[in-house]
């Protein structure tokens, strides 16, 4: 017994050290940097209190627009990926022919790098030669400059990211659906539950843990959205698609506002915690209940 404990500790220690340094130490470092005057190229660790945070929240127009964009992006992205993911997972689980083929088709976007899919979507949205423009032409609809419009650029990015991540939520829900014992569903059918009722009363409650997992992961992804925005619009036109993570990169690496960039990172982190901490509690509870 003692030997087994020692062995397990030996296995855990390296990962604890690595996570400790590369995750927690860096978070602590970023937190410390966000309270300094380091808004120059060279490190300046003099204490600035909440100056960077106050600037961001009271004076920084760009940051305000970023938060607004992010909170518009978030519900569409999260609900979009979750509803589509559940729908596709249900289809795949319904004993459809060539299921393995369709599963691969739906999961494939997830395997593509965000940078690559960003470039693909730029081509799709191109107002003169793009796929969407050709489609519009067939139906004699006017050409729309998707990524160059203050109105359509953010929805265009939401669609692209939902496309990319729906495979992810599909796989989460598929695992959840496969985990429901067949007897439960048969018993419900015998009791007269069919169609929507069966889903609403039996299946959806039984995949609750998948729902919570998908929700937390999608919220966290949308708060940290960077790659696809950077590739497709760099936050433009005129901040219409700008996100806190894009500003963090520009502030820290281009403008040398290192402390301000760190403060943005901490704000993103805090927003993520708001979602993750309740998850950690409920996740524990759900597993206990299911067990």
């Amino acid at each position: 017994m003692r030997k087994r404990t020692l062995v397990s500790i030996a296995f855990i220690v390296p990962s604890v050290i690595i996570v400790g340094i590369f995750v927690y130490a860096f978070i602590a470092w970023t937190l410390a940097a966000s309270f300094t005057n380091w808004n120059t190229l060279l490190p300046n660790w003099s204490f600035a209190g909440l100056k960077n945070y106050i600037y961001l929240f009271t004076q920084d127009m760009r940051f305000h627009m970023d938060l607004v964009n992010n909170f518009i992006f978030l519900p569409f992205f999260v609900l979009g990926t979750m509803i589509l993911g559940f729908f596709l997972a249900t289809l795949l689980n319904s004993g459809i022919k060539f299921e393995a083929f369709f599963r691969t088709v739906f999961l494939l976007p997830m395997a593509i790098s965000l940078v690559v899919s960003g470039v693909i979507w730029i081509w799709i949205y191109d107002p003169t030669n793009g796929a969407l423009a050709s489609l519009f032409q067939i139906f004699h609809l006017p050409a729309v400059n998707w990524l160059g419009s203050m109105t359509y650029a953010l929805p265009a990015i939401i669609i692209a990211t939902v496309w990319q991540y729906t495979g992810f939520t599909t796989s989460i829900y598929l695992a959840g659906l496969r985990g429901i014992p067949q007897e439960v569903i048969e018993a419900a059918r015998l009791d007269g539950a069919h169609g929507l009722r069966l889903y609403w009363n039996i299946i959806i409650p039984m995949v609750q843990s998948s729902t919570v997992t998908a929700f937390v992961l999608m919220v966290q992804l949308s708060l940290q959205m960077f790659d696809i925005v950077w590739v497709m619009t760099q936050g433009g036109p005129a901040f219409a698609t700008d996100m806190p993570a894009v500003y963090m990169f520009i502030a820290g690496f281009k403008q040398n506002f290192v402390a301000r960039g760190a403060a943005i990172a901490i704000i993103i982190f805090a927003l993520t915690l708001v979602v993750v901490i309740p998850y950690l509690f409920t996740a524990g509870k759900i597993t206990e209940e299911e067990a």
Partner: peptide, 18 residues
């Protein structure tokens, strides 16, 4: 200075789109 130019370019874009 680079920091100013970045914000200045963005301000011009705001003017462009309004």
């Amino acid at each position: 200075p680079v920091a100013f130019v970045t914000d200045w370019e963005n301000a011009l874009t705001v003017i462009q789109y309004h």
